[in-house]
Protein backbone atom coordinates (compact mmCIF):
# COMPACT_ATOMS: atom_id res chain seq x y z
CA UNK A 1 0.00 0.00 0.00
CA UNK A 2 1.28 3.42 -0.86
CA UNK A 3 0.05 6.95 -0.15
CA UNK A 4 1.60 10.00 -1.76
CA UNK A 5 1.05 13.70 -1.16
CA UNK A 6 1.86 15.28 -4.51
CA UNK A 7 5.11 13.56 -5.42
CA UNK A 8 6.20 12.81 -1.84
CA UNK A 9 5.61 9.27 -0.60
CA UNK A 10 4.01 9.59 2.84
CA UNK A 11 3.53 5.90 3.47
CA UNK A 12 4.75 2.78 1.72
CA UNK A 13 3.95 -0.61 3.23
CA UNK A 14 4.51 -3.75 1.15
CA UNK A 15 2.38 -5.99 3.40
CA UNK A 16 1.10 -5.78 6.94
CA UNK A 17 -1.39 -7.76 8.96
CA UNK A 18 -3.19 -7.34 12.27
CA UNK A 19 -4.83 -10.31 13.99
CA UNK A 20 -8.15 -10.11 15.79
CA UNK A 21 -7.67 -9.25 19.47
CA UNK A 22 -4.18 -7.83 19.04
CA UNK A 23 -3.21 -4.62 20.87
CA UNK A 24 -0.87 -2.82 18.54
CA UNK A 25 1.23 0.21 19.39
CA UNK A 26 2.21 2.43 16.49
CA UNK A 27 5.29 4.51 17.23
CA UNK A 28 7.45 6.86 15.23
CA UNK A 29 8.78 10.39 15.14
CA UNK A 30 6.78 13.39 13.93
CA UNK A 31 6.07 13.04 10.21
CA UNK A 32 6.73 9.30 10.20
CA UNK A 33 3.29 8.61 8.69
CA UNK A 34 1.35 7.41 11.77
CA UNK A 35 -1.69 9.64 11.31
CA UNK A 36 -1.73 8.98 7.56
CA UNK A 37 -1.72 5.26 8.34
CA UNK A 38 -4.62 5.59 10.78
CA UNK A 39 -6.56 7.81 8.36
CA UNK A 40 -6.14 5.18 5.65
CA UNK A 41 -7.42 2.50 8.04
CA UNK A 42 -10.49 4.64 8.70
CA UNK A 43 -11.11 5.24 4.98
CA UNK A 44 -10.56 8.97 5.44
CA UNK A 45 -7.80 8.80 2.84
CA UNK A 46 -7.64 6.52 -0.15
CA UNK A 47 -4.32 4.79 -0.93
CA UNK A 48 -2.74 5.60 -4.27
CA UNK A 49 -1.70 1.99 -4.58
CA UNK A 50 -2.79 -1.20 -2.84
CA UNK A 51 -5.73 -1.73 -0.53
CA UNK A 52 -6.85 -2.39 3.05
CA UNK A 53 -8.96 -5.41 3.88
CA UNK A 54 -10.92 -6.09 7.04
CA UNK A 55 -11.95 -9.72 7.49
CA UNK A 56 -10.93 -10.27 3.89
CA UNK A 57 -13.23 -7.56 2.50
CA UNK A 58 -11.95 -4.36 0.94
CA UNK A 59 -12.49 -1.37 3.21
CA UNK A 60 -14.09 0.82 0.57
CA UNK A 61 -16.35 -1.91 -0.79
CA UNK A 62 -18.10 -2.71 2.47
CA UNK A 63 -19.16 -0.27 5.17
CA UNK A 64 -19.98 -2.89 7.79
CA UNK A 65 -16.66 -2.24 9.59
CA UNK A 66 -17.94 1.15 10.69
CA UNK A 67 -20.58 -0.42 12.91
CA UNK A 68 -17.87 -2.19 14.95
CA UNK A 69 -15.13 0.46 14.93
CA UNK A 70 -14.54 3.14 17.56
CA UNK A 71 -11.99 5.79 16.72
CA UNK A 72 -10.58 9.13 17.78
CA UNK A 73 -7.80 10.85 15.88
CA UNK A 74 -8.16 14.52 16.76
CA UNK A 75 -10.59 17.24 17.76
CA UNK A 76 -12.21 17.21 14.34
CA UNK A 77 -13.82 13.94 15.45
CA UNK A 78 -15.93 15.91 17.90
CA UNK A 79 -18.99 17.92 16.98
CA UNK A 80 -17.86 21.01 18.82
CA UNK A 81 -21.20 22.79 19.17
CA UNK A 82 -22.76 19.90 21.10
CA UNK A 83 -22.57 19.40 24.85
CA UNK A 84 -20.87 16.27 26.23
CA UNK A 85 -24.15 14.37 26.84
CA UNK A 86 -25.53 15.43 23.45
CA UNK A 87 -22.40 14.23 21.66
CA UNK A 88 -22.26 10.88 23.46
CA UNK A 89 -25.98 10.32 22.86
CA UNK A 90 -25.40 11.08 19.19
CA UNK A 91 -22.49 8.64 18.94
CA UNK A 92 -24.61 6.04 20.75
CA UNK A 93 -27.44 6.57 18.27
CA UNK A 94 -25.02 6.17 15.36
CA UNK A 95 -24.17 2.74 16.78
CA UNK A 96 -27.83 1.92 17.35
CA UNK A 97 -27.56 2.26 21.14
CA UNK A 98 -30.53 3.77 22.98
CA UNK A 99 -30.12 6.77 25.28
CA UNK A 100 -30.72 4.66 28.38
CA UNK A 101 -28.19 2.04 27.31
CA UNK A 102 -25.68 4.78 26.42
CA UNK A 103 -25.68 6.02 30.03
CA UNK A 104 -25.49 2.47 31.35
CA UNK A 105 -22.42 1.83 29.23
CA UNK A 106 -20.84 5.12 30.26
CA UNK A 107 -21.02 4.13 33.94
CA UNK A 108 -18.10 1.77 33.30
CA UNK A 109 -15.94 4.81 32.49
CA UNK A 110 -16.91 6.96 35.50
CA UNK A 111 -13.34 6.89 36.77
CA UNK A 112 -12.01 8.30 33.51
CA UNK A 113 -14.75 10.86 32.77
CA UNK A 114 -17.53 11.11 35.36
CA UNK A 115 -20.44 11.66 33.02
CA UNK A 116 -22.83 12.08 35.95
CA UNK A 117 -20.85 15.11 37.11
CA UNK A 118 -19.96 16.89 33.85
CA UNK A 119 -21.33 20.33 33.09
CA UNK A 120 -24.17 19.32 30.78
CA UNK A 121 -24.72 22.89 29.55
CA UNK A 122 -21.20 23.46 28.27
CA UNK A 123 -20.30 23.06 24.62
CA UNK A 124 -17.42 20.80 23.56
CA UNK A 125 -15.66 23.75 21.94
CA UNK A 126 -15.36 25.36 25.37
CA UNK A 127 -13.59 22.36 26.91
CA UNK A 128 -9.84 22.25 27.51
CA UNK A 129 -7.73 20.14 25.13
CA UNK A 130 -7.39 17.40 27.76
CA UNK A 131 -11.09 17.21 28.56
CA UNK A 132 -12.05 17.31 24.89
CA UNK A 133 -9.65 14.40 24.31
CA UNK A 134 -11.27 12.43 27.13
CA UNK A 135 -14.67 12.88 25.50
CA UNK A 136 -13.29 11.72 22.13
CA UNK A 137 -11.65 8.63 23.66
CA UNK A 138 -14.78 7.84 25.64
CA UNK A 139 -16.89 8.11 22.48
CA UNK A 140 -14.57 5.63 20.78
CA UNK A 141 -14.66 3.12 23.64
CA UNK A 142 -18.10 3.11 25.28
CA UNK A 143 -19.85 1.66 22.21
CA UNK A 144 -18.05 -1.68 22.87
CA UNK A 145 -16.42 -1.83 19.45
CA UNK A 146 -14.52 -4.83 18.08
CA UNK A 147 -11.86 -2.53 16.66
CA UNK A 148 -10.43 0.64 18.25
CA UNK A 149 -8.16 3.22 16.63
CA UNK A 150 -6.71 5.98 18.81
CA UNK A 151 -4.16 8.61 17.81
CA UNK A 152 -2.01 9.90 20.69
CA UNK A 153 -4.56 9.07 23.41
CA UNK A 154 -2.18 9.85 26.30
CA UNK A 155 -1.11 13.30 25.09
CA UNK A 156 -2.64 16.28 26.96
CA UNK A 157 -4.14 14.07 29.69
CA UNK A 158 -3.32 14.63 33.35
CA UNK A 159 -1.35 11.81 35.10
CA UNK A 160 -4.38 10.24 36.88
CA UNK A 161 -6.31 10.16 33.60
CA UNK A 162 -3.32 8.60 31.81
CA UNK A 163 -3.16 5.83 34.41
CA UNK A 164 -6.91 5.20 34.24
CA UNK A 165 -6.86 5.19 30.45
CA UNK A 166 -4.05 2.65 30.49
CA UNK A 167 -6.12 0.40 32.76
CA UNK A 168 -9.20 0.81 30.58
CA UNK A 169 -7.30 -0.04 27.40
CA UNK A 170 -5.72 -3.13 28.94
CA UNK A 171 -9.05 -4.25 30.38
CA UNK A 172 -10.93 -3.61 27.12
CA UNK A 173 -8.30 -5.38 25.07
CA UNK A 174 -7.80 -8.41 27.28
CA UNK A 175 -11.34 -8.95 28.58
CA UNK A 176 -13.37 -7.99 25.53
CA UNK A 177 -10.85 -9.31 23.01
CA UNK A 178 -10.95 -5.92 21.26
CA UNK A 179 -8.47 -5.28 18.47
CA UNK A 180 -6.69 -1.97 18.97
CA UNK A 181 -4.25 0.30 17.23
CA UNK A 182 -2.83 3.01 19.44
CA UNK A 183 -0.35 5.51 18.13
CA UNK A 184 1.70 7.22 20.79
CA UNK A 185 4.88 9.12 21.54
CA UNK A 186 4.73 7.85 25.11
CA UNK A 187 6.90 4.75 24.81
CA UNK A 188 6.35 3.73 28.44
CA UNK A 189 2.57 3.67 28.23
CA UNK A 190 2.44 2.09 24.80
CA UNK A 191 4.75 -0.78 25.71
CA UNK A 192 2.72 -1.40 28.87
CA UNK A 193 -0.61 -1.54 27.03
CA UNK A 194 0.30 -3.16 23.71
CA UNK A 195 1.51 -6.65 22.95
CA UNK A 196 2.91 -5.70 19.59
CA UNK A 197 4.82 -2.59 18.47
CA UNK A 198 5.13 -1.35 14.91
CA UNK A 199 7.76 1.29 14.37
CA UNK A 200 7.30 3.67 11.47
CA UNK A 201 10.01 5.86 10.04
CA UNK A 202 9.77 8.04 6.94
CA UNK A 203 6.61 6.24 5.85
CA UNK A 204 8.06 2.75 6.16
CA UNK A 205 7.68 0.01 8.77
CA UNK A 206 11.16 -0.57 10.08
CA UNK A 207 10.36 -2.76 13.11
CA UNK A 208 7.37 -4.95 13.91
CA UNK A 209 7.98 -6.74 17.21
CA UNK A 210 6.22 -8.57 20.04
CA UNK A 211 6.42 -6.54 23.25
CA UNK A 212 8.81 -7.92 25.81
CA UNK A 213 10.68 -6.62 28.85
CA UNK A 214 13.41 -5.28 26.61
CA UNK A 215 11.15 -3.45 24.15
CA UNK A 216 11.10 -0.13 25.99
CA UNK A 217 14.88 -0.03 26.26
CA UNK A 218 15.17 -1.03 22.63
CA UNK A 219 12.84 1.77 21.53
CA UNK A 220 14.61 4.29 23.74
CA UNK A 221 17.90 3.36 22.15
CA UNK A 222 16.44 3.58 18.69
CA UNK A 223 14.96 7.04 19.15
CA UNK A 224 18.03 8.45 20.89
CA UNK A 225 20.49 7.28 18.26
CA UNK A 226 18.70 6.61 15.03
CA UNK A 227 16.31 8.29 12.70
CA UNK A 228 14.73 11.68 13.23
CA UNK A 229 11.91 12.23 10.79
CA UNK A 230 11.22 15.62 9.47
CA UNK A 231 8.11 17.28 10.72
CA UNK A 232 8.25 19.76 7.90
Amino acid sequence: MEKRYDSKVALSIPAWNLESGELLGLVGSNGAGKTTFLSLLLDLLRPDQGSIRINGRALEADNSWRAVTGSFLDRSFLVEYLTIPEYLEFVGAAFGISKKETYQKLEAFEGFLPISRVDSKRLLRDLSTGNAKKVGILAALFVSPDFVILDEPFANLDPPSQIRLKEILIRTGKENHTTMIISSHDLGHVTEVCDRITLLSQGKIIRDIETSKETLAELNTFFSTDVVDSAT
Binding site: L44, R66, S76, F77, A94, F95
Partner: peptide, 13 residues
Protein backbone atom coordinates in the same frame (compact mmCIF):
# COMPACT_ATOMS: atom_id res chain seq x y z
CA UNK B 1 -16.69 20.53 7.41
CA UNK B 2 -15.14 20.81 10.88
CA UNK B 3 -16.59 17.50 12.02
CA UNK B 4 -17.23 15.75 8.71
CA UNK B 5 -14.65 13.12 9.65
CA UNK B 6 -16.61 12.44 12.84
CA UNK B 7 -19.66 11.66 10.73
CA UNK B 8 -18.05 9.47 8.10
CA UNK B 9 -16.05 7.32 10.53
CA UNK B 10 -19.19 6.52 12.55
CA UNK B 11 -21.86 4.21 11.31
CA UNK B 12 -23.85 7.11 9.87
CA UNK B 13 -25.15 6.22 6.39
Amino acid sequence: SEHYQALVTRDVP
